[in-house]
């Protein structure tokens, strides 16, 4: 309820702060988008002015250049395939692991949960060298698989699923059991449809984590054929002549798919939360 001057002032202050923060976050993306639509000559000349945020003369030349100079479609395909596999396999593996931790009784369950939590604090960079040796020894270098396998099982995803499954009433599973469903069927037919918010959240988190992955593919791949977008943009950056308009256009090409997917998943996420009448 807004019924006094003081409340109006408070509201104004909050809206002002939120607007400022939004500008802060959105400005770089607008800058890249505007730059990518400008002729090369204007990208740098207008960079220090307010006009940097507005394409004064719209041109798609930079995008054409990018598609002509590097195999963007291949990079897009590679990134899509790698991330698609990581997310889809990750949803299956991590949800099953989270379910086993939350609901099934087995010796060592508590210790395993502690181990999962402990893994949350170990950065991937610390694991990359031993993983490099292990997977190289298996002959997996320069493959899609080597960019997928290490990231399928994810402690954060397991923990997110674990916490969500704990919040589901156990009676749902017990009812399904009495109705004749075995554990796997109960999971697939009863638990998964009621865990849409958890699946949407984990899908978003995993995608955001891995879409911009750079170090690991750089270590494990040599040729262009299996490399993802971040490596593509890096090699493009060092490719003469260095054209900033083209680099900005490539950046937009890289951001766009994940932005679109994020928007779709976000809708599913809200719908999932709204429709999950797990109260029974």
């Amino acid at each position: 309820m807004i019924d006094s001057g003081a409340t109006w002032r408070q509201l104004l202050a909050v809206v002002g702060l939120l607007t400022f923060l939004s500008i802060l976050f959105v400005a770089p993306i607008v800058l890249i988008l505007a730059g990518s639509l400008k002729p090369e000559a204007r990208v740098l000349s207008e960079a220090g002015t307010l006009r940097a945020f507005f394409p004064t003369r719209v041109s798609l030349q930079n995008y054409r250049d990018v598609f002509e100079r590097v195999p963007v479609v291949l990079y897009l395909f590679n990134s899509g395939l790698i991330n698609g596999l990581i997310v889809s396999l990750g949803l299956i593996v991590n949800s099953l692991a989270g379910y086993a931790l939350a609901r099934l009784r087995w010796p060592g369950r508590g210790r395993f949960l502690l181990l999962v939590l402990a893994l949350l604090i170990i950065p991937f960079e610390a694991l990359s060298v031993p993983l490099f040796y292990a997977l190289s020894a298996l002959g997996l270098r320069d493959t899609y698989m080597v960019q997928v396998l290490p990231f399928v099982a994810n402690p954060l995803a397991i923990y997110l699923f674990y916490s969500f499954f704990l919040s589901l009433p156990a009676e749902l599973e017990e009812a399904a059991q009495l109705d004749g469903a075995g554990p796997l069927r109960t999971f697939v037919v009863i638990i998964v449809p009621n865990a849409k918010p958890a699946f949407a959240t984990v899908a978003i988190v995993m995608l955001l984590f891995h879409w911009g992955m750079y170090l690991w593919p750089l270590l494990m791949t040599a040729g262009e054929s299996v490399r993802p977008l971040p490596l593509g943009i890096a090699s493009f950056y060092s490719l003469p002549p260095r054209q900033w308009g083209d680099i900005l256009a490539f950046s937009i090409i890289m951001v766009l798919p994940v932005l679109l997917l994020f928007m779709i998943f976000q809708r599913a996420f809200v719908r999932g939360v709204a429709s999950s009448g797990v109260k029974g």
């Binding site: 009433p169 009676e171 017990e174 059991q177 075995g182 429709s275 029974g280």
Partner: peptide, 20 residues
Amino acid sequence: QPPQERDIAMVFQNYALYPH
């Protein structure tokens, strides 16, 4: 026997209807 083989039906306190 596991629950699904005992041929028993149960009405739970919170009904446990499948929400979806």
